[in-house]
C-alpha cells in the first residue's frame, strides 16, 4: 500500500510585499510504500521541509495534489495517524516533559487512558524518564530532540515524519534514535526522514530521494543509488603483473590495479563477459567480481553538482 503519494506538486512562495517568488517544489512526484523508511536528502533550501509541511497541511500547495494514508492532505482528521518531529521544534516553556506529551497527545486525538498508558514507556524509550517533571525550558538541545521524538510517537502513528531527527544529539544518542526507528519499522510503521546526515540515512533507509532546487533528481533504494553498475572490481587468485596486464588488456578501461585485483569500467554486460573470456584465455583464475559501490555521500555530491551545473547552463 502507498502511504505517501505526491502528484505534480508545485509550491511557490510569493511575497506581495517584496514582490518575490521562490519556487520551493516543482512538479514533484513521489510515492512511499507502507512499512518502509524513506529518506529525503538535499542541500539547504532544496525543498525538503516544504514537502513535509505540505503533506502535513502547514504549507498550502500551489499546484498538484498529495495523499497521506490514502486520504487527501486537506482532511486534517487523517493526522490522528501521523506523528511529526519538526526541525527546531519548540514546546511551551512552562510545561514539563510529561505535560508536553499529554498536551500533544490530546491534540492528536488520544484519550486520557491512551496517553497515560504511553507516557512512561515513551519517556523510557527516549531515555527521558528522569526528566519527566522538569520544565522543558531547562532542557538541552539533545533532550528537546528526544522529547520531540517521544511526542511524535504519542499517538502511536502509522506514518512518522522526522525532520533532522538527530540534530543536536550526541553519537550515542544518534545510535539510540536509529535503533528506535528501526524498531518502529519492524512494527510496520512508515518513516519519512529529512536529513543532512547522509551516512545515517544510508544506514536506516530503504529508499531515498534526492532533491535539489525543488526538483526530484533521483530516487531509488540505497543499494541502487550507491551501486555503480558500470564499474566492477575483479579479484584474481594469483598476483598481477601490472605492465603485462596493462599491455594485454589495453582495450578495456582499466582503473586501479593492486596486487591481485583491478577495477574496470565497462559499457555493458557484454563487454564484461568479453573481459572474463579474455582473462580465462590468458589463464587467469577469477576469484570474485563485484560491482563497485560509492558512498551515498559521494553519489549525493556528484548528483547535486551535476544538477547545479545543468541549472547554470539553462
Amino acid at each position: 500500500m502507498i502511504t505517501v503519494e505526491v502528484s505534480n506538486l508545485t509550491k511557490i512562495y510569493e511575497s506581495s510585499y517584496k514582490k518575490r517568488r521562490i519556487t520551493a517544489l516543482t512538479n514533484f512526484n513521489l510515492s512511499v510504500e507502507e512499512g518502509t523508511v524513506f529518506g529525503l536528502l538535499g542541500p539547504n533550501g532544496a525543498g525538503k521541509t516544504t514537502l513535509v509541511k505540505v503533506l502535513l497541511g502547514i504549507v498550502h500547495p500551489t499546484l498538484g495534489s498529495a495523499k497521506i494514508l490514502g486520504q487527501n492532505i486537506n482532511n486534517y482528521e487523517i493526522r490522528k495517524r501521523v506523528g511529526y518531529l519538526p526541525e527546531n521544534h519548540k514546546f511551551p516553556p512552562y510545561l514539563n516533559g510529561e505535560d508536553v506529551l499529554r498536551y500533544v497527545g490530546k491534540l492528536s486525538g488520544c484519550t486520557n487512558d491512551e496517553i497515560n498508558s504511553r507516557i512512561d514507556g515513551l519517556l523510557k524509550l527516549v531515555k527521558m524518564e528522569k526528566w519527566k517533571k522538569t520544565k522543558v525550558k531547562k532542557y538541552s538541545k539533545g533532550m528537546m530532540q528526544r522529547l520531540g521524538l517521544a511526542q511524535a510517537l504519542i499517538n502511536n502513528p502509522d506514518l512518522i515524519f522526522l525532520d533532522e531527527p538527530t540534530d543536536g544529539v550526541d553519537p550515542i544518542g544518534r545510535k539510540e534514535i536509529r535503533d528506535i526507528l528501526l524498531n518502529l519499522k519492524k512494527e510496520g510503521k512508515t518513516i519519512f526522514i529529512n536529513s543532512h546526515l547522509l551516512s545515517e540515512v544510508e544506514l536506516i533507509s530503504d529508499r531515498v530521494a534526492i532533491l535539489n532546487n525543488g526538483l526530484l533528481i533521483k530516487e531509488g533504494t540505497v543499494e541502487d543509488l550507491t551501486t555503480n553498475k558500470e564499474t566492477y572490481s575483479i579479484k584474481l587468485t594469483d598476483d598481477i603483473d601490472k605492465l603485462w596486464f596493462e599491455d594485454n588488456f589495453k582495450d578495456f578501461h582499466l582503473g586501479n590495479i593492486t596486487a591481485n585485483s583491478f577495477e574496470v569500467k565497462v559499457s555493458d554486460e557484454k563487454e564484461l563477459n568479453l573481459l572474463i573470456d579474455e582473462l580465462r584465455k590468458a589463464g587467469k583464475n577469477i576469484k570474485e567480481i563485484v560491482p563497485v559501490k560509492t558512498s551515498l555521500e559521494d553519489m549525493f555530491i556528484s548528483l547535486i553538482n551535476e544538477s547545479d551545473k545543468k541549472k547554470t547552463n539553462e
Binding site: K53, L56, G57, I58, Y76, E77, I78, R79, K80, V82, Y84, P86, E87, N88, H89, K90, F91, P92, V104, L107, S108, G109, Q151, F161
Partner: peptide, 15 residues
Amino acid sequence: LEKGNIDVLLSKPIS
C-alpha cells in the same frame, strides 16, 4: 506562531 511551535500545532488533527 513562532517557528517550531506552530509546526507542532498545525501538524495535529485540528482545524
